[in-house]
Design a protein around this nucleic acid. Structure first.
Lengths: 199, 199
DNA sequence: TCGTTACTAGACATCATGTCCAATACGACG
DNA sequence: CGTCGTATTGGACATGATGTCTAGTAACGA
């Protein structure tokens, strides 16, 4: 454990990382998370298996990197289409998902790898919490509302990936806001406010 | 594959199944889904490893059985506390969860096994769909609303397991209905009705 | 060009899996 | 109660993936 990690400034390292990451995405789409081994991954990436262990401990670690990329890509997409209405990012998320339908289906769809699914769920929860934090006072109620909305959005996203007849991101987003808006209003309206800080 | 399955009428078989199932629950709580092997399971259950493969193909199959039990138990609990208001079962679900807090934390909590989590999510979705089906006309919109509410309830459930300060099932349920009611109303109110069949 | 670092193939030990067998223990049923 | 059928058992075995290590080779940065 804790060996010296290869330097990221080296072109060879970037090449290896890139190849493994790309192969990972392909293999998840083709066979699902449990459908391939480290050996398969290395073979597909054309990387020596010894080399793999110089960089990563297991498949999960490669996934973490690849997923961090997805997160950045998504956040970038969100920054461009940034509105200020509540939960505006949902539009970008749904667009992003439908723009990479094959990947999303394999990553979070019905037959998907639960490991990956969990990562996206965590990301959605994080995004919703950030948004809700600007609209509700701190406290358990805010957390509950965030959980409620995040779960709703995530499950709606999954549904939209395989909806029959197919749904456009715009439709799904409109539906989400139609359902979420009153819930958010209800969440803000009543409930235990944060107790005023003692002076 | 496809070997002759031991007869379920035999006491020895029931004993073996029971022991494995109990050991499974214990080990999931103690070490998480990926934290133990078939060997560990057999050892804990005091069952020969050869015997295991006479009954199950892998850990997942044992889980399926154990989870089916949980489903029955839950549905029984729901039947007793059956109200007719929308999504009445949420109360029973949250009570059931808080009544088996250690198990639920291990099964669907933050550090939980994604495999198990997915099963419960599917169950919640099924329950919500059954309920929503009695209140909204068939069609994609109904499915979307069901997904929305199921995701919301599931994530709220997870949140309630580790909420700080702790939340009672009653509070969590009240909160859920406070947020879900307007959403359900919105879902029923407008939107594309099922297109009238061409005459 | 030179020194450093990453890459590689291959060997190796380890472990879990899944299958099979012959011997044994136990439950069902007459 | 005795007998028959079946479940259980430990152990052997082949297989495949994992993770570590080493010595030689190739590519990088400067």
């Amino acid at each position: 454990m804790g060996q010296k990690q290869p330097s990221l400034d080296d072109r060879r390292v970037r090449r290896t990382h890139g190849a493994l990451r790309a192969a990972l995405v392909e293999l998840i789409v083709e066979r699902g998370w449990d459908g391939f081994t480290v050996q398969d991954l290395c073979e597909r990436a054309d990387v020596g298996r010894s080399t793999f262990y110089l960089h990563f401990a297991d498949k999960d670690e490669v996934l973490a990197g690849a997923f961090a990329d997805l997160g950045k890509q998504l956040r970038a997409h969100l920054a461009s289409s940034g509105g200020s209405r509540p939960l505006a990012f949902s539009r970008g998320l749904l667009e992003h998902a439908h723009g990479h339908l094959r990947v999303y289906r394999a990553w979070v769809g019905r037959r998907a790898a639960h490991v990956v699914q969990a990562k996206l769920r965590a990301l959605v929860l994080e995004l919703v919490r950030e948004d809700v934090a600007t609209r509700l006072p701190a406290g358990p109620r805010r957390e509950a509302v965030a959980a409620f909305l995040a779960g709703a959005l995530f499950e709606l996203l999954i549904w939209s990936l395989d909806a029959r007849p197919p749904t456009t991101p715009e439709e799904a987003d409109a539906l989400f806001h139609e359902l979420a808006a009153p819930a958010l209003a209800a969440g803000a309206g009543r409930g235990p406010r944060v107790p005023a800080p003692r002076p």
